[in-house]
Design a protein around this nucleic acid. Structure first.
Length: 774
DNA sequence: TGTCTGGATGTTTTT
DNA sequence: CATCCAGACA
């Protein structure tokens, strides 16, 4: 046997060698799951299975890329490129691009992201004359998404007594109608949302037997990663694809199931065993990642959940250090202590930035960590949050491309028809949409025949200019590659020039973002075609759009950059780091206030905590703050209930208030000598310039304020005591004089002339002011 | 038609 | 506190 098998333990090898027939691998955290899948695929190929006949589905592009890379490493050569490895969404999008016409969609169909989808919902709610307050896009989209993930179409939704009751109870009885209208609208626009990529794939396989047969023959071996996170559609599709050869291999860990809000159900693991007569089950229980201490804590935490698949995770690694549990006064202190600790570990134990990860429950928590890291000059990178492709200027530019590729894309038209300003305003747009609806045609059709629909001559002229321009782009579509065409678009629309002329900091950032977009298109155009893109592998704009629609910049990796990584726990799944900080272990935050109403919800939060803990290899720090800013207000929180579930013998508790290097100087507390020194020397008065360039997702520029360091004994004065003419101190803007007090008593507003930052209007409910004595 | 602004609203988690 | 949006006005 080949030598790659030598590195495997007994159950791992068993899983790898098993060739035909269904197999389920229950893989505990850190048990070498990825290694098993990749080795298994490599082994299949080595034993004669054609790479073209292997399908591997993952949940993130990153996981897919990593797998491909590791298989290539095992096998050498380029054969691994012929594998079908990708996320559910990207693989299905690729297949649908070829098959969409069967379903009545153009093969150039647009993929709507969540923002596009919400916008369509908003339009539809308006057109149905429903209350927009009642039917908020977010809530409605969530509901529709769950329905699609459960394979419930609009008609079925409306006929389902239970769903109807639920909607009635939540005062939203019309969601079914919205769902139907939304689906129709997307169809009309030639667009699919994320969930459609799964839903329509299922339609394709069930509605067209010849299609089903084609892909069953093609994918003789099917592998699914993170099986515990599959939802109903995904489960059904896998079942369909695997039905002919039954060579289905699923890998999962019920203890790490954290996506039930997306319709995932652990039931799929149990169901899988019932779907086939004979199924092999392998359990991977040896953990190679973490110290005994870390694993003990993880095992203890998860033991509070009922109903798990039995398994006992163990490790032969060293005992390791105790887990540090750190309490701080505020979220800002939490940020400081984490940054300080990182600095200390770097100096003392020679860690690199890369060795650290800061994990949290919600994206909003990144702020305090960012600030502290930046202040200390520690390079960091935030994963998740707003993606590059979601930025307004980037989306606007992309909308032009979308429109050129798919003129039926109404959302794209609405975005660009008056950007840059060309005299086609809201009134005209509303009219266009109305006419299109009445004539049962697309907005683009109306635009191209605008003269027939009684617009004023001035408006008509504007429309004509716009249409002519878009048509010009369209005529270039086949002749030019994605990059050349996008350059033409940038020039002809004046977008690039307009942004260039905007010399504000924000404008500059926007200009740079658009340049960055053009660079990425150039890169796409120049990268040699990958066989994996088989059916769609051209360098056209359409091909490019398809690709970026499913890209999140979580995986847009410059892996080699040495940076501390910040991300949500969800985003951290599947990753590991030598040193892990888990922040915000407070009631209402973690577990989230939204998820403490049922046992199921709470157990999912606990699994999430389990995932967080098991990311750590050698050092784990848990932190929580007595109080933190939420909704602009300081909020007190109890420590997370999960902390009580950990045996204190595993913990080393500390209170940041006593830490020698970092007196818990909260924003208004006393500052320590060390801190005053740092202010005095290290940082300059403005913007505390970092020693090293900080890596962030292309900064969204903010108007510059010269940062003010609050006086040591800053204590906010009562709002009632403030008077015009008084000298005051503001935490951020510094010293100044109250010019004017105005606004209602419940929302007073002060106009203050600051010494260094000029005149500002301050809402006193939020900002704290200190009256200066004498 | 475009720009300004007060008021409402928001925080789970993601492909 | 930041962002988004509807209505007011230019």
């Amino acid at each position: 046997m080949s030598k790659y098998l030598d590195d495997l333990n007994v159950p791992q090898r068993e899983a790898v060698i098993h060739r035909d027939g269904p197999i389920m691998i229950i893989a505990g955290a850190g048990s070498g799951k990825t290694k098993v899948i990749t080795t298994r695929i490599a082994h299949l190929m080595a034993s004669g299975v054609d790479a073209f006949n292997i399908l591997a589905l993952t949940f993130t592009n990153k996981a897919a890329a990593e797998m491909k890379e590791r298989i290539e490493k095992i096998l050498g050569g380029t054969e691994a490129r012929n594998l079908y490895i990708g996320t559910f969404h990207s693989v299905f999008a690729r297949i649908l691009r070829g098959e969409a016409p069967r379903l009545g969609y153009p093969s150039n169909f647009t993929i709507y992201d969540a923002d596009d989808a919400k916008s369509v919902i908003k339009t539809v709610v308006k057109e149905l004359n429903l209350d927009e307050k009642q039917y908020k896009p977010n809530i409605v989209l969530n509901r529709i998404s769950l329905a699609k993930n459960a394979l419930v179409g609009p008609e079925e939704y409306m006929n389902d007594g239970f769903l109807q009751q639920e909607d009635a109870r939540s005062q939203r009885p019309e969601i079914g109608r919205i769902y139907r209208a939304y689906s129709n609208r997307c169809f009309k626009n030639g667009a699919m949302d994320f969930d459609d990529l799964l839903f329509k794939m299922h339609d394709l396989l069930t509605g067209f037997p010849e299609c089903l047969s084609k892909y069953q023959h093609k994918f003789k071996y099917v592998m699914i990663d993170e099986y515990q996170d599959t939802n109903t559609v995904q489960y059904e599709i896998v079942k369909l694809l695997g039905a002919m050869h039954e060579n289905v291999c699923v890998v999962g860990d019920d203890a790490q199931s954290i996506y039930s809000f997306r319709g995932a159900t652990i039931e799929n693991i149990l169901q899988f065993q019932k779907d086939y007569d004979e199924i092999k089950v392998v359990k991977l229980e040896q953990n190679y990642r973490s110290t005994k201490n870390i694993l003990n804590v993880a095992n203890q935490v998860i033991s509070f959940n009922k109903g798990q698949i039995e398994k006992k995770l163990f490790t032969e690694n060293i005992e390791g250090e105790k887990i540090k549990l750190i309490r701080t006064m505020t979220d800002n202190d939490e940020g400081k202590i984490v940054a300080d600790t990182i600095q200390e570990l770097k100096l003392r134990n020679h860690f690199y930035n890369n060795d650290f990860a800061i994990l949290y429950r919600t994206n909003a928590q990144s702020r305090s960590f960012e600030e502290s890291l930046r202040r200390m000059g520690i390079v960091y990178k935030i994963y998740g949050g707003m993606s590059f492709y979601q930025r307004k200027e980037v989306k606007d530019f992309i909308a032009y491309m979308r429109l050129v590729v798919n003129p039926r894309d109404e959302e794209a038209i609405k975005r660009v028809i008056n950007y840059p300003v060309r005299g086609i305003g809201k009134t005209t747009i509303d009219k266009l949409v109305l006419i299109a609806n009445n004539n049962n045609s697309s907005v683009w059709d109306i635009l191209t025949n605008a003269a027939l629909h009684g617009f004023k001559s001035g408006t008509l002229e504007c429309i004509d200019t716009f249409v002519t321009m878009i048509k010009m782009f369209q005529s270039e579509l086949v002749k030019k590659n994605a990059y050349d065409l996008s350059v033409i678009i940038g020039k002809s629309t004046n977008i690039v020039k307009e942004l260039f002329n905007d010399k504000t900091t924000e404008g500059l950032a926007r200009y740079e973002n658009v340049q960055e977009l053009l660079n990425s298109i150039k890169e796409f155009t120049e990268t040699p075609m990958n066989i994996e893109d088989g059916e769609v592998g051209d360098k056209s704009l359409g091909s490019y759009l398809q690709q970026i629609a499913l890209l999140t910049d979580t995986e847009d990796n410059k892996e080699n950059a040495d940076a501390v990584k910040l991300m949500t726990i969800h985003a951290a799944k599947g990753l590991e780091f030598p040193v892990v900080f888990v922040g915000g272990l407070e009631e209402t935050l973690f577990p989230s206030a939204m998820s403490i109403n049922t046992r199921e919800e709470l157990e999912e939060e606990r699994r999430l905590f389990y995932v967080a803990i098991t990311r750590a290899k050698t050092k784990l720090h848990l932190t929580y703050a007595n109080a933190r800013y939420r909704f602009g207000q300081l909020q007190q929180n109890e420590p997370s209930r999960f902390l009580e579930e950990i045996d204190t013998a595993f913990l080393e508790k500390s209170y940041a208030g006593n830490a020698s290097r970092n007196n818990a100087a909260s924003s208004w507390g006393q500052s320590s000598a060390a801190e005053r020194m740092r202010r005095g020397f290290g940082s300059t008065t403005n913007n505390a310039a970092p020693a090293t360039k900080t890596i962030i997702n292309i900064p969204l520029a903010r108007p510059q304020t010269k940062e003010h360091v609050p006086t040591a004994n800053f204590v906010a004065s009562e709002t009632a005591d403030l008077q015009e003419g008084l000298r005051v101190e503001h935490q951020k803007f510094g010293f100044g004089k109250i010019e004017k007090l105005e606004g209602a008593s419940h929302n007073p507003i002060a106009t203050i002339l600051f010494d260094i930052n000029g005149e500002k209007k301050i809402m006193l409910n939020y900002a704290k002011l200190r009256i200066l004595e004498n």
